[in-house]
């Protein structure tokens, strides 16, 4: 079985079969990370350009490690070193990179739709590593992988996502993925940070975090950017924590075996209490670990690899 897409622009264009394929393939690659020699020759001779136009530590390192473990050659461009600071447009940058014939361009950019723009102009497979408030598909995939490892399934689970919904690409990708895989999603956050008609994405909206987390299997907290205070979306970090912070008391309202997730980086005491972030129900660091296998799977499948062969590739 193959992926039905050439690029990973988002979760929205995928179907449940594609998502299942990526998650299964990731499971086959996971073991490599536990070896002493964490490298397979699967993508030897393939070139990956990591075009990061926005600061990123986690995602970028995760992609780099995934590429290295697959033996791909990778090249890193970031906003400060690229010619975009010299006034070159994104399309010109992409065409120049394209002229060096990479197999993949992994792009992180503040502008929604920028991966779509690259896909329009480039032959390479484009992997969206986060585009503005649009999508962050590999994050949703690693989240799903983490949920599946802990809960054994996605279908039928109740997932609460809490925080700055309006500006979050993570939430959009997660909503698409969880809905496609048959999970129930309830979102919560201050109404100033809920985008219009968000229910049409197939989610329930709860204005109180207590309602959102009640009886749920997974709680996913989103990072609150400091600038939301100065832009008038919320009055203070203090009041935000009072209304939406994830505390031990609030976790107690959820299913007894709830898991706590966060895409990072976390703001302790703003959206999540340290006792929860570091507690037994937290899988926040496991998410980071799983990101590598998921990104390996994505690159492998986009390169034309087949799921059945992934086990051999990993062997």
């Amino acid at each position: 079985m193959d992926l039905k897409v050439r690029h990973l622009l988002g979760i929205e264009p995928l179907d449940a079969q594609d998502i299942g394929l990526i998650l299964d393939t990731a499971a086959a690659f996971e073991e490599i990370g536990r070896r002493a020699i964490k490298k397979v020759p699967t993508l030897r001779g393939r070139t990956v350009v990591n075009l990061f136009m926005e600061p990123s530590t986690r995602t970028r390192s995760s992609f780099e490690i995934a590429e290295k473990r697959l033996s791909a050659d990778s090249l890193n461009f970031s906003a400060s070193t690229s010619s975009l600071v010299k006034g070159e447009t994104l399309i010109d940058t992409a065409l120049n990179l394209e002229a060096m014939s990479p197999d993949f361009i992994v792009i992180r950019h503040s502008q929604p739709g920028s991966p779509n723009l690259l896909a329009h102009y480039c032959q390479s497979s484009i992997v969206n590593a986060g585009d503005g408030a649009h999508e962050h598909p590999t994050q949703a995939l690693l989240d799903a992988f983490t949920i599946r490892r802990n809960k054994g399934r996605l279908a039928g689970l109740r997932v609460a996502i809490v925080g700055d919904i309006a500006h979050s690409r993570v939430v959009r990708s997660n909503i698409h993925l969880l809905r496609k895989m048959g999970a129930e999603v309830v979102i919560s956050g201050p109404p100033t940070l809920l985008p219009l008609e968000v229910e049409r994405l197939g989610v329930q909206v709860a204005l109180r975090i207590e309602q959102a987390v009640e009886g749920c299997d997974v709680i996913m907290m989103l990072r609150l950017q400091r600038e939301r205070m100065t832009s008038g979306h919320i009055p203070s970090a203090r009041e935000y924590f009072k209304l939406f912070g994830l505390t031990t008391a609030r976790v107690a309202l959820a299913h007894p075996e709830v898991i706590i997730m966060h895409p990072g980086p976390i703001n302790r005491g703003v959206e999540i209490e340290s006792a929860v972030a570091d507690g037994a129900t937290s899988v926040i660091l496991e998410q980071v670990t799983n990101g590598i296998a998921v990104r390996m799977a994505v690159l492998y499948l986009l390169a034309g690899g087949r799921a059945a062969e992934a086990k051999d590739a990993a062997a």
Binding site: E12, P112, G113, D131, G132, A133, H134, E135, R169, R172, P195, L196, E197, V198, R200, L201
Partner: peptide, 13 residues
């Protein structure tokens, strides 16, 4: 336009 599609596309409505 601010609405379902701006929410979906992550573009400012």
């Amino acid at each position: 336009n601010e609405g379902y599609l701006s929410t979906l596309l992550g573009l400012k409505g």
